[in-house]
Design a protein around this nucleic acid. Sequence first.
DNA 1: ACATCACATAAGCACGCACTTATGTGATTT
DNA 2: AAATCACATAAGTGCGTGCTTATGTGATGT
Lengths: 103, 103
Amino acid sequence: MEHDIFRALADPTRRTIFERLANGSMNASALRQGMDISQPAMSQHLAVLRKARLVREQREGRFVNYEVDPDGLALIVQWLAKYRAYWPTRIDALKLLLKDMDQ
Amino acid sequence: MEHDIFRALADPTRRTIFERLANGSMNASALRQGMDISQPAMSQHLAVLRKARLVREQREGRFVNYEVDPDGLALIVQWLAKYRAYWPTRIDALKLLLKDMDQ
DNA sequence: ACATCACATAAGCACGCACTTATGTGATTT
DNA sequence: AAATCACATAAGTGCGTGCTTATGTGATGT
């Protein structure tokens, strides 16, 4: 399962898909816009992201709406937490993170 | 670079190596103990982890000591920060993280 | 100096993976 | 009910990747 996540994110196309979904959920056809990717390829990528729990589907008629699944991200956070002793303490990303989570 | 990281972590053997180094830095030979992996394979895995900045080397005589490189982890945190809007707010891992970072 | 040790690199191979084309499935439209 | 649409699945293919064996390199030991 942790394996599924890292394997899913190892592909740049899937990271792009995930990033696009993070900016708003949409269906598979909409996801293809401006991505130069075939319909089966998109479907296969979404299947991999689904298995990794990075993305979840929501049937709406004959469309399938896709959205970010927090479970996958939670598992990455969990994995990262194991190594928090090595996290640099002063980097901007971390400060950003802290600021955002404080409120 | 972010690509190098996810690709590096996509392999279970490399994740194991990384985890072992997180529990204490050591040289390549010591890393092989109990892992049933050839010397060249280990060397190649370490090269991939190095390129991803997840690990860094420190020559000591004819030994090469390996340790976790915080830079790689920082990049993952940075990547994760982009999706913090989707992080679940009540999971244990997150609470653990916060508690540890507060002090 | 030579041998040996710790590790890196080279080259070849088998397997996994991302793609393709073709076809299947279930819902909507007319 | 027949056609069309949105998407999934099947099967085949080329390439990347992780392994192997063989060899190179640089440091230590005798």
